[in-house]
Design a protein around this nucleic acid. Structure first.
Length: 598
DNA sequence: CAGTAG
DNA sequence: TGGCCTTACTG
DNA sequence: GCCA
């Protein structure tokens, strides 16, 4: 009794001719017409490949709500390092238990209805679905095999895809950013330009009608999805960029290339790839073809070409070759040591060192103090820090600050504030409405946390530039008064371990800001690198300002520009201050979760 | 001074 | 074709 | 590598 199968089209991709024939023989409901197939099967494993196949079949679809399967690959976790010969400088080995979390059981709720359901929905599944179903003699749920789910559209209905996400509420002054994580900020902006155009007071507001370039290339009438108006800017601080964009897997490939460029010393390449990554991270549609890419800012023919190669081959030449290039693999290992950058990584390699044991054995004494710490805790620093632990660490820091004065306030910044489920390190910004309280607190705080054995090592302390380092600010101008304290912020970069449970050592940054620039401080510490870079560039080019986390200045005369106080006085809290900075910079408010530029 | 950090 | 974010700290 |  064969299971009752839906109409199936079998893709020939990656199948030998005889394999193909044999499989086809086992499918009673086989069709060769893509339009009547309910299920498309193939020996493929990525949603992008699925789209590529649909294109080849000339089957136009729009995506149906489906949180894309993320290609969240851990970096290199195969470190076959010998435990033999632990050098005097012992590098503690982690006790067993490595992968505590199994991926892939994120609770698949909805079982897809294969037989019933609206007739115009087509599923692209992995071939394994068929094999498993036949083996077990039942039609298995498609969930675990699903690569793509789309609704067939006739070539003339170019409906903008809105994959059924709930309409999010408007952000207003009082909304807290944390809740934004669950939203789908795309949906409110993917509506056609014109209907919901942003209120960006950017001057060069792009409220043009949906004039899509006439990209009616030789190709068929399937129109490219509209470019959201916010993607006409080259500044990533002017648009939402979410944590898990639809094209995350392709972005991951570009990030891999970026890392390779870094290791090779190609800094310009790093810049360029960062720009394209940030642009793609803001693109709310799953890519369908290379032409879409070239329309995006920071993306040109090269990136489009890489995309094509990647959809067809599953990876690019550059990453494929790198995988077997020992030099690059070793460089990456070295680069991951805290305190070792790409230049030093190459130097280590040139000395003939090939793994961490070589460094310990042959070069220990040549390492800087922080590099020694980086090597010693190499494994532990690679571990991600879950959100609840970040909160625990932060609350200890705040408690110690409040022991000095109860008026201290704190915002956890960094990737935590962006809503990531785990972080590489912990960043917190502390401030106090009374400026006298933030003056020399950093050293007292650090020593207090050292005495309580939370801080095991202090990597560096940026101490009191405010007082001593006023000279370096060539941004002279008489506007700056002595002791006003808005030079580069005081901060401490430390190694942390809970003295009670003795968990892994963690990297923690504690930043102190005077109240009047606390908005800039949390803004400067919450976005990803490209967001920051573009924010500074935007301030320079568009505003004639010089932004940094310790304040905004006029480039004309170097005078401090206060964007954080209103007529009603200083901001009541740091988040409000941050909103005022956005306003003062003529930027639309961007919740931290939308600052994920990759 | 070069190198590194966020 | 030049420019691409910023700057103090460390050794 | 892309943009002004």
């Amino acid at each position: 009794m064969a299971p009752e199968l839906p109409r199936i089209l079998l893709l020939p991709t990656h199948l030998q001719a005889d394999e193909l024939r044999e499989l086809e023989a086992r499918i009673p409901t086989l069709t060769h017409n893509a339009h009547e197939a309910k299920v498309i099967l193939g020996k493929i494993s990525r949603p992008e490949r699925a789209l590529f196949e649909l294109r080849r079949l000339k089957l136009a679809t729009e995506p149906v709500a489906l949180e894309g399967a993320e290609g969240d690959e851990a970096i290199g976790d195969k470190r076959g390092r010998s435990d033999a010969a632990e050098v005097p400088s012992k590098r503690p080995r982690l006790s067993g238990s490595e992968a505590l979390r199994s991926r892939a059981d994120e609770g698949h709720v909805a079982t897809l209805d294969l037989l019933g359901g609206s007739g115009d929905v087509v599923l692209v599944l992995k071939l394994a679905w068929l094999l498993d179903s036949l083996e077990q003699n039942v039609v298995l749920p498609a969930d675990d095999y699903l690569l793509y789910q789309g609704r067939k559209i006739s070539s003339h209905s170019a409906q903008a895809s809105n994959p059924g996400t709930p309409q999010p509420r408007k952000e207003d002054e009082t909304t807290r950013s944390a809740s934004a994580v669950n939203d789908s900020p795309y949906s409110k902006r993917t509506t056609r330009p014109g209907t919901s155009s942003s209120t960006a007071s950017d001057g060069r507001l792009h409220s043009e009608p949906p004039t899509l370039h006439r990209e009616t290339t030789s190709e068929h009438e399937v129109p490219l999805p509209p470019i959201p108006d916010f993607l006409h800017t080259t500044y990533s601080c002017q648009r939402p960029s979410l944590v898990s964009p639809p094209n995350a897997t392709f972005i991951a490939e570009l990030k891999a290339i970026r890392t390779l460029r870094l290791l090779r010393g190609d800094q310009v390449g790093v810049r360029a790839y960062s720009t394209s990554i940030a642009s793609l991270a803001a693109y709310p549609h799953l890519l369908q073809r290379p032409q879409e890419i070239e329309r995006l800012p920071g993306c040109g023919p090269k990136i489009a070409q890489l995309y094509q190669q990647w959809t067809e081959d599953g990876c690019t030449d550059e990453t494929r070759k790198a995988k077997t290039d020992t030099e690059l693999v070793v460089l990456k290992t070295f680069y991951d040591i805290w305190g070792v950058g790409d230049t030093t990584a190459r130097q280590f390699f040139k000395k003939g060192w090939r793994d961490l044991d070589d460094i310990v054995e042959y070069g220990w004494d040549s390492l800087s103090r922080v590099q020694q710490i980086g090597v010693k805790y190499y494994d532990e620093f690679q571990l991600k820090i879950p959100r609840d632990e970040t909160e625990t660490i932060a609350s200890v820091i705040l408690a110690h600050a409040r022991r000095v004065d109860p008026g201290f306030q704190m915002v956890i910044v960094g990737s935590y504030r962006r809503g990531k489920p785990s972080s590489g390190d912990v960043d917190v910004v502390l401030s106090h409405p009374d400026e006298a309280q933030t003056l020399d607190i950093i050293e007292r705080l650090v020593s207090s946390l050292e005495k309580s054995n939370f801080i095991t090592h202090t990597l560096s302390v940026w101490t009191k530039n405010s007082e001593r380092g006023q000279a370096p600010l060539a941004w002279k101008g008489e506007g700056r008064r002595a002791g006003s304290g808005f030079d580069t912020l005081d901060k401490a970069m430390v190694v942390w371990q809970n003295p009670q449970d003795k968990g892994p050592h963690r990297r923690v940054d504690i930043i102190i800001s005077p109240w009047k620039t606390a908005g800039c401080a949390i803004l400067g510490w919450s976005g990803e690198t490209t967001f920051q870079r573009d924010l500074r560039r935007y301030c320079k080019v568009k505003m004639g300002f010089k932004f940094d986390s310790s304040g905004v200045r006029s480039r004309a005369d170097g005078s401090w520009v206060d964007l954080e106080s209103s007529e009603r006085g200083p901001a009541p809290d740091m988040e409000t201050a941050e909103r005022r900075v956005f306003e003062g910079l003529d930027l639309e408010w961007r919740p931290p979760a939308e600052r994920c530029t990759g």
